[in-house]
Amino acid sequence: MGTQVQTQRQIRPRLNIGSWFQRLARDMRKHYILYLMLLPGVVYFLLFRYFPMYGAIIAFKDYRVLEGFWGSPWVGLKHFNTIFSSPFFYNVLGNTLIISIAKLLAGLPVAICFALLLNEVRLHWFKRSVQTITYLPHFLSWVVVFGVLLTTLSPSSGLLNKTIVAAGGQPINFLADPAWFRVVLVISDIWKDIGWGTIIYLAALAGISPSLYEAAAVDGATRLQRIIYITLPSIVPVIVLVTLLRIGNLLSAGFEQVFVLYNPSVYGVGDIIDTWVYRQGIQGFQFSVSAAVGLFKGAVGCILLVTANWLAKRFAGTGIW
């Protein structure tokens, strides 16, 4: 996908806006079917994604329902000031970034490796069984996963702590120990999505032409070499796509998971932006503050995404655009 972009750019003649519209008009006449195909999706995005965006302006207003989104009084950056001047905000921001980045750095390679390993299995029944089983945890809600974690990690009756005690150690309250909590978050996140995360790569792997492997086999390439030189490069566009989108959402570190798993003992290390805002707003009407946080997260995501896309194009030769 990336290489096509590059060549495309080279052969594209220099344009000005006028000729771009001319080209568009010409293309529309010639390929009107393509534009018709696009229509339902574009209408959807305008109606359900872009039109509701007017709601974001209440980040700069004190939202008064009866005066509506437009009539509510402007307050400028008041809500942003509220957020940024909170002494807790920077701690919470730090936690969010640490947890997000840890999940990204640990989770992504695991999913890719797991997909590659699955791809190497020749026995269909084995491959299918492993896939079917490992993708199931994705469907468990975090509340259920919390139940499992509690039975495993409980300091009084948990399996893991019983083992630690049997080995002569002191029981660890993993869920209430600030030193362990983030580890629990990352590992439980990987556990839950290890199978599910591979699906997208397996779809890409299915698209690889068999002739490539045959040629490599004839050349006497080992399995590992084939993985590194054929399989991996062919899923790079998907890896880049997934990574970039996750980088764009780096400030969302998994609200539901943290909300269910954390407790006051680990607020210091586990509290993320979304849970913090939730607790601030638990008493009620804080649509303006939510909107401000949403805009902040979006703006940061935008910067991260543009940077990451530029880096990806430079070093991996492919990006989203």
Partner: peptide, 19 residues
């Protein structure tokens, strides 16, 4: 596009009318 929509929305926002 977003700003255009904002303008369009200005005319027909249900919340605005209700207000």
């Amino acid at each position: 596009a977003m700003f255009l929509l904002l303008l369009v929305g200005c005319g027909g926002s249900p919340a605005g009318q209700a207000g």
